[in-house]
Simulated scan of single mutants.
Amino acid sequence: MNLGITRGVLPAFYERLRDELTFPLSWERSAGHDFPAWRAEARAVVAESLMQPAAPGPEPFDPVTVEASDAGPYTARTVEFALSRYGRARGSLLMPHGAGPFPAVLVLHDHGAEFTIGREKTVRPRSDPDRLARATAWADRNYGGRFVGDELAARGYAVLGVDTLGWGDRGPLAYEDQQALAANLLQLGTSPAGLAAHEDIRAAAFLASLPEVDERRVGALGFSMGAYRAWQLSALSDGVRAAAAVCWMTGLKEMMVPGDNTLRGQSAYFMLHPGLHRSLDIPDVASLAAPKPALFLAGGRDHLFTAAGVETAYAKLRAVWESQGAGDRLTTTVRPDTGHAFTAGMQDEVFAWLDRWLGAPVRESAPGPAATSGAGGGLPPSS
């Protein structure tokens, strides 16, 4: 009997462990099919797996604007706010000219083993030529040469991007140090994935709190790890009204096979909640967002996710949305000729979808005056 490990650093008995996962809290196993009750119970299980102790009271954002500049149809600002009770973080905030209130999108950056830039993967950096060069190269490689945050702002959306712990201004983390970070956070009673989820909820709430933003029209968008974060955020936050996830959805069992990228370990820590899958499959968690609008796009040539895993997940998602009479609010698409990328064509599809579900933005006829450093947005200037 082989009690050791097999290819992909899996235990030789991994198939038995995998078969024991029955996801007893999944919607399909719900006896009463009482959706609000199921969601409340499942959310409680997810919340416990995040390992985020409850705050003693309301946590103020205490925002300041660090710098601002005119960017044509919108103002580009660097803002600083309390991302959690543990510390502050900087974000890239794009705000259309005019009075608003505007629909808004939290753009969530990918992993990609590129830590020197984070929010700059989705929002063009303006004050650092070196970061701009790296971000432009990243956009060319993964985003069809576009900065999706800037594209949305030009369409009339308020946009916010924030670094995850380890990226950009909150790093940079070295690839081989991800395991040490995860181990240390676990020793301290939390996890990278749980902390990131909590911070994403806070970032979305901060965006919704801005006076120029219509809190009824806040969405989330991400590619790759950002996609995981986008659907997870919609599942856990009632304040996020719609989410678009590009290139991250699968069934767990179909993902846990030799050779899968997740089995390499390191980057998985940012998408791994200890013990959660004893109760829920990956699409079960995403289904907590139902019946809100949700868009899932996959690449048929994406080497990170098997076709079987994507189809299994899509089937589970469709069953939940359809059970709530909201099948028209769920879009699940596979682009057969696309790999692991957020192409310009996919972006155009996402932008049209966001216009539909967050409401077509009202464009102002003329932009306001150019912003000056430290100005704008109802935020006090940095001291």
Rank of each mutant, 00 (worst) to 15 (best):
R7H: 13
R7V: 11
A12Y: 03
L17H: 12
T22K: 08
R29L: 07
R29Y: 01
G32M: 04
H33V: 10
A37E: 13
R39A: 15
V46N: 01
A47W: 01
E48H: 10
P53C: 10
P58W: 09
P58I: 13
P60G: 06
F61M: 00
V64R: 12
A71C: 05
R77N: 11
E80Q: 15
F81A: 05
A89F: 03
L94Y: 01
M95P: 02
G98F: 02
G100F: 02
V107S: 07
A113K: 12
E114P: 00
E114R: 10
I117E: 00
D130Y: 04
D130E: 14
R131M: 08
L132Q: 11
A139Q: 13
D140I: 08
F147G: 04
V148K: 13
G149S: 14
D150V: 10
E151C: 12
L152P: 11
A153P: 12
L165C: 07
W167Y: 15
W167Q: 03
R170M: 15
A174Q: 08
Y175Q: 04
A183N: 14
L188Q: 15
G194Y: 01
A197Y: 02
A204K: 07
A204F: 05
L207G: 10
E212P: 01
D214A: 09
E215Y: 03
G219I: 09
A230I: 14
A245D: 10
M249H: 00
L252Y: 04
E254Y: 06
R264N: 11
R264D: 10
Y269D: 06
F270R: 06
M271H: 00
L272S: 11
H277C: 06
H277Y: 05
S279G: 07
S279E: 13
P283Y: 01
K292D: 06
A294F: 11
G299V: 09
F305H: 11
E311A: 14
A313K: 02
L317R: 02
A319P: 05
V320H: 01
D328P: 00
R335C: 12
G339D: 10
F342N: 09
G359Y: 00
P361V: 04
V362L: 07
S365F: 05
A366T: 15
P369N: 04
A375N: 07
G377C: 12
P381A: 03
S383M: 02
